[in-house]
Design a protein around this nucleic acid. Structure first.
Lengths: 265, 265
DNA sequence: AAGCCTAACCTGTCTAGACAGGTAGCGTGT
DNA sequence: ACACGCTACCTGTCTAGACAGGTTAGGCTT
């Protein structure tokens, strides 16, 4: 991991030895087998009992190791069924921009969007403030799941003021694209007004959708779009498996030939 | 497939207290006592054995609950000593800017910086590329820990090209400020060239310094500063307890009176 | 009074079982 | 051929106890 250097830099303060208790051995062994693709993504692990035999320990010791790997999002256990490899940790780079997720760096990656629900709701305090609407204003609420290379990677809820998008459902049903909805309603240009990033933990529903263990750590993103007239047109919240992505925010003064990157177009 | 939980993404493991196994009851009870300050920050919890008596379960069941709370950074166990409350989860907002951490929103908060080490190293591939230097170039490496309201909150390693800062040690020793070092070397203006954010897990050394359990989830930040001549003067990496901060990135087109926020000055 | 030492206490880890509840596949009966 | 039900297997959780190793405070020695 990229920050292991911090530890190296400070070995004078704390040394992290090559200590090894039985569960740590199991943890490291399985982790290496996952990273090296000896255990393929999606594959089922040997059952806990088989692992007990292999490592000559009891189930609780095996489970200690499996639990750590689940927390890190590498494994997901399905009750009654088995434990499965979830993710070989490549980390996608996301550049903040208008289409948040559409600028995955590697061009060969597949991105699939699943619309889970479209609802109407009334603005609560939070959305009202973010969108600069009165509390109780009508909102369109879209919940979507994005799969990158077939791994569920981004769970997203968008809030849009109903009043700006009278024909939302028709257009969205046709194209599955919020940008097309914008265009159809006369919004041909808009700006990312603000982006926020923090961390949190997966509630049961989120975990299930993302294929993670309940309580798994997440990256949480929030963004706000504004049209050229200064109207707040979208408030979006989303969550990602903790190590699935790296957000890249380019600085403001990237002046090549006089224009400002992220500002032009 | 109810997704409404995404609204309270940073809640904890499970909500809607429908289901309850013994360890979940303990988890929720202790979590509530921490959040409500019945258990003060820094206080020692009753020993595991006492909790066993209180909840009428065995130690493994108590530990199951404690483990979840440790993972979320609310508790930290010290072997031989006890389990202590670490953090009542207020989340500081950090606005990305020149002085990364100096713009904590709440003005009443205390910020204390601890310089852990200052070393000289040779640039490895990563730093060389980031700073646009030849591999093996001389670097100054500063490791610092920042406490916010006495909680260790930000562990940070800065890499600076030695060649730009001949008098680094003297100036830094006097003022403990990298900005002052810049000024003393004629750099009165610089820009945040890029910021990256992702997530990861605490190595043992990091965990100990931050007062977290080993393997606890972290927010990882990376930033790059450039002076007005376009020289890369600083590459900084850091890690934060997952829920300790929220990064706020204002959009580029915040045009008030014709200037671009984050660009002027 | 200062310092050492020991005993009590605490967490970390592991063993060896047990039962509950979910899953999937196999075989039987229709 | 198909549907159903049963069974074997799997993970989730809990019990009851054990030992190892770190911490701390109180008592003893000097």
């Amino acid at each position: 991991m990229s920050l292991d250097e911090i530890e190296k830099a400070d070995e004078g303060i704390v040394e992290s030895g090559a200590e090894s208790s039985p569960w740590l051995v199991i943890y490291r062994t399985l982790r290496d087998e996952i990273v090296s693709h000896d255990l393929a993504s999606g594959a089922r692990l040997p059952s806990e009992k088989q692992l007990c035999d292999r490592f000559s320990v009891t189930r609780m010791t095996v489970r200690r190791a499996l639990q750590a790997l689940q927390h890190e999002g590498m494994l997901i256990a399905r009750k009654g069924s088995g434990v499965f490899v979830r993710r070989v940790p490549p980390c996608y780079q996301i550049t903040d921009g208008k289409r948040f997720i559409d600028n995955i760096t590697a061009p060969g990656d597949s991105v699939l969007t699943h619309t889970l629900s479209i609802k109407r709701e009334r603005a609560r305090a939070e959305e009202a403030e973010a969108l600069q609407l009165p509390r109780g204003a009508r909102l369109i609420v879209i919940t979507r799941l994005r799969l990158i290379n077939d791994e569920p990677t981004f769970l997203n809820v968008k809030h849009l003021p109903s009043s700006y998008f009278q024909n939302f459902d028709d257009i969205y049903a046709q194209r599955q694209s919020v940008d097309d909805v914008y265009r159809h309603h006369g919004i041909h240009d808009y700006v990312r007004k603000e982006t926020r990033i923090t961390g949190g933990f997966a509630a049961e529903g989120q975990a299930q959708i993302l294929g993670l263990a309940a309580g798994a750590p997440l990256l949480l993103s929030q963004s706000l779009n504004e049209d050229s007239a200064g109207r707040r047109i979208e408030h979006s919240k989303g969550c990602w498996p903790l190590t699935a992505v790296e957000f890249v925010f380019p600085g403001q003064r990237e002046s090549i030939d006089g224009t400002i990157e992220g500002f032009a177009q």
